[in-house]
Design a binder for these strands. Structure first.
Length: 806
RNA sequence: GCGGGUAUGGCGAAAUUGGCAGACGCGCUAGACUUAGGAUCUAGUUCCUAGUGAGUGCAGGUUCAAGUCCUGUUACCCGCACCA
């Protein structure tokens, strides 16, 4: 049978199926359905004016394939999408073009939605959330107030990371490496009045929670490093002339007998307390001013050369040696970690050693094993304590225990755990963000907005530029700021700062479960039904930002009994970057950006999807290659042309049966392991095989089509329909394979002589070892190689090889 | 400095438990069909000095057999970084 099949018209076919899917709600997730649920989550996009990027397609395609497959496997799949739409790019664009950010956002969301649909993603578009919608950010504010109620929100005037270009305060997570996350400008330290979320209260839980969270080691270790857990002790050093103490944190209490001086941070409060007694107060003050001006970048760059000033007039007492020791200030000790003060043990800490050398301070060996005249000895495994009174002769491990016990008994210290992670600076002096729901009253002070008055909506204003005074643009809008105190009813003012970009994304995965609930952020029943996100895929760049933040919010909500699980995500994976054709990161300035919409027009969405998943290992960065698109398109064209010679038969053809079963197994397994490149390669092999086969049955083509569907759903749906199916592929069962048919009846045996391949032979499966040996030795090519030599040994691996050692 | 990762043809990349290195795709070469080909099809394509040759960043080792295991080493990428 041969029929005339017109060539594959991607534009027509893709439009047809997109209309069908989206009009028929084919991907609607059903609350409380009896089918088992499966929740796939991808990081919702920031709807920028540039529209979709090929990176978005790579990021979503993995769980797109998994979602399509899961529906066929009988799951009730929740695969939602939404928009993380507050933030600076929109705001800056709006200012530049004098268009209100609301309008800019709405337009961008509209364009983005069209592009997502043009790619054929199987998102449930009924559940779209938009973080800038008052119905959404009402609940962002609500959760903020819950945290306030539970003491996890505080305001403090401290030095914070500030981006001079964006004119906003940045959290620690947003200023990694001393640079602004968004614009790359050097961050400066400014003293500001800032709202903080006490994420550090959850540091321990965020760390242990990683045990219930399946992810790759790089995802896990990045979070571990960021949280930065370390165990040690607090020790109080008495001042020689006062009943007052300097408290230090150390991970090496065992080295206390070697503590010959102390260092405190330039911001340490002691300097203010004993101002009058410090003889060189001016010198100290100069140093404080100097370090204040340093950016993070400068501190890192200049870290080779330690600076500091000795405080004249005050000394401390080492509680174990009872010796008076000098106190220095130096910016190698930071106020934000530990207690902002250290006991310096130059013999066994490289930084202290360097400092001691520079200022010619006493260096005492308290752990044997190194040569402290050359360098600090920091090995904790082999050393034995010396010159150390009550802990002499002990190992480092035992000495730590003993000394902590002593410190506790004498009330001069205790064991302690510290984290590197810092509290989350949670406000921006910009317009396009969630207003912080706080009111200032002259009589009552800081008063939270009552829950029933939420949301505090952003006023529609004409001017939304940031001010030069560092105040939010909202501060100038009287209709917004003027309010009455909820407590006493007197006139009061609203907080005019807004929340940072990461606020809305910290709980969006919960809203998807119940996206339009006006009474709760999500109903208990729905939270329970959908449970945890089964699989979350996103970018590596969010691992120490959004991923930490959202786990924090979820753990908090769980502690309040508001969500059923402590960890929001069961499993997290991350896609690699798509680089430009030049191997560099895609960027406007390099001019190497690939526009996915142009490719969809020219080659079709199916081709683009297949190519992006075929391009390389999903988790690794890989360069774009325009030419490679053709290969993906050729594969789809070949599949399409199989229709020309299909015979009406509901069994696999003899010649293809085995390879089809192998393909089902291979593709199924590869998809689960995110090895999409090899899954597609296996499909290509099967399609090539079918192309060169005399006969191909309806059943052959059907199975190949179904297997291709998660990758290229439009063309697959069209072929499936033309094979006579009324029902769509969306819930067609995923094919199964027969183990017995995976094994070939004949196998190729490789024959080695001394480990080198000399010949091959085809034999029946499970030929006996003796037969294999006999056959191998009789081969002509083998005879040539063993002639005149004695055979020492013959190794036979059944169904694999024969190795003759001579 | 610490932590994680990578290294394989002209290019993107494959390779259960150690068992045919380079699957699949791009590109390239030759041919077929064609008014035409940047369409399609067929054949070939790791390298060279063409052998009883060499070959998975480099140097060793274990083994009948190593991309895979062990020891050492180099380069690049990512994250953190004076964190006491």
């Amino acid at each position: 049978m041969s029929a005339f099949i017109p060539s594959f018209n991607h534009q027509q076919v893709e439009k047809k199926w997109q209309n069908f899917w989206y009009n028929s709600q084919a991907f609607q997730a059903k609350d409380f359905d009896t089918l088992p649920k499966y929740y796939n989550l991808v990081e919702f996009p920031y709807p920028s004016g540039a529209g979709m990027h090929v990176g978005h397609i790579r990021a979503y395609s993995s769980l797109e394939v998994i979602s399509r497959k899961r529906r066929m496997e009988g799951y009730n799949v929740l695969f939602p999408i939404g928009f993380d739409a507050f933030g600076l790019p929109t705001e800056n664009y709006a200012i530049k073009n004098k268009i209100h950010p609301r309008i800019v956002t709405d337009n961008n969301i509209k364009v983005f939605t069209e592009q997502l649909k043009a790619t054929g993603f199987s998102f449930d578009f009924n559940r779209v959330v938009d973080t800038t919608d008052p119905d959404y950010y009402k609940w962002t504010q609500w959760i903020f107030l819950k945290m306030y109620e539970k003491g996890l929100v505080y305001k403090s005037t401290t030095f914070v990371n500030f981006c001079p270009d964006c004119k906003v305060v940045l959290s620690n997570e947003e200023s990694q490496g001393g640079q602004c996350d968004r614009c790359g400008a050097d961050v400066v330290q400014l003293e500001k009045d800032v709202w903080f979320l006490k994420i550090t209260d959850y540091a321990g839980k965020l760390l242990t929670g990683l045990n219930d969270f399946e992810s790759t080691s790089r995802i896990r270790t990045e979070q571990e490093n960021w949280i930065g857990h370390s165990e040690g002790a607090y020790i109080s050093f008495k001042l020689s002339a006062h009943q007052d103490y300097i408290k230090v944190f150390t991970t090496r209490p065992d080295t206390i007998y070697g503590a010959t001086f102390m260092v405190i941070a330039p911001e340490h409060p002691l300097l203010e307390t004993y101002k009058t007694e410090i003889l060189n107060h001016e010198e100290i003050h100069d140093y404080q001013e100097q370090s204040k001006r340093k950016t993070e970048f400068e501190r890192i760059q200049l870290n080779k050369d330690k600076t500091g000033v000795r405080i004249q007039g005050i000394e401390a007492i080492n509680p174990l040696t009872n010796q008076a020791i000098p106190i220095f200030i130096s910016d190698y000790v930071v106020i934000t970690y530990g207690t902002g003060a250290i006991m310096a043990v130059p013999g066994h800490d490289e930084r202290d050693y360097e400092f001691a050398k520079k200022y010619q301070l006493n260096i005492i060996e308290v752990i044997q094993g190194g040569d402290i005249s050359q360098a600090a000895f920091t090995d904790t495994e082999t050393g034995i304590l010396v010159n150390s009174g009550i802990i002499n002769g002990l190992s480092v491990k035992d000495a730590k225990k003993t000394i902590i016990q002593y410190l506790v008994e004498n009330k001069i210290g205790s064991s302690s755990v510290q984290y590197k992670m810092k509290d989350w600076a949670f406000n921006r002096q910009r317009y396009w963000g969630e207003p912080i729901p706080i009111i200032y009253c002259d009589d009552c002070g800081v008063v939270p907005v009552p829950y029933e008055e939420l949301p505090v909506t952003l006023p529609m204003v004409e001017h939304f530029e940031p001010t030069d005074t560092g105040e939010s643009p909202l501060a100038k809008i009287e209709s917004f700021t003027k309010c009455t105190c909820p407590k006493c009813g007197k006139p009061a003012r609203r907080e005019t700062d807004t929340m940072p970009q990461w606020a809305g994304s910290s709980w969006y995965y919960l809203r998807y479960m119940d996206p339009s609930n006006p009474l709760e952020f999500a109903s208990k029943d729905k939270l329970k039904y959908w449970g945890q996100v089964d699989w979350y895929n996103g970018g590596m760049e969010h691992v120490t930002r959004h991923l930490i933040y959202s786990r924090f919010w979820n753990q908090f909500l769980n502690d309040q009994g508001l969500v059923p699980h402590s960890e929001p995500y069961k499993k997290r994976t991350a896609q690699g970057l798509i680089l430009g054709e030049d191997g560099e990161k895609m960027s406007k300035s390099r001019g190497n950006i690939v526009n996915p919409m142009e490719i969809i027009t020219e080659y079709g969405a199916d081709t683009l999807r297949v190519f992006i998943l075929f391009i390389g290992d999903y988790e690794m960065a890989t360069p774009w290659n325009d030419a490679g698109l053709k290969g993906a398109r050729r594969f789809l064209d070949k599949l399409w042309r199989l229709q020309e010679k299909v015979t009406d038969n509901n069994h696999y053809s003899d010649s293809l049966e085995s390879i089809i079963h192998k393909t089902i197994k291979g593709v199924s397994e590869d998809i689960e392991q995110m090895k999409f490149n090899t899954a597609i390669s296996k499909l290509m092999i099967a399609v090539n095989e079918a192309t060169s086969s005399e006969i191909i049955t309806k059943k052959d083509l059907e199975t190949l089509t179904v297997l291709t569907y998660p990758f290229a759903p439009h063309i697959a749906s069209e072929i499936f329909e033309s094979l006579g199916h009324q029902e769509s592929l969306v819930t067609t069962p995923w094919p199964t394979y027969d183990e017995a048919l995976l094994v070939d009846k004949q196998v190729t045996i490789v024959i080695n002589v001394n480990g080198k391949i000399r010949d091959k032979m085809i034999v029946n499966l499970n030929t006996s070892q003796a037969d294999l040996e006999k056959k191998a030795l009789s081969l002509e090519k083998i005879q040539v190689h063993i002639q005149g030599q004695t055979i020492k040994k013959i190794i036979v691996v059944p169904n694999k090889l024969v190795n003759i050692v001579v």
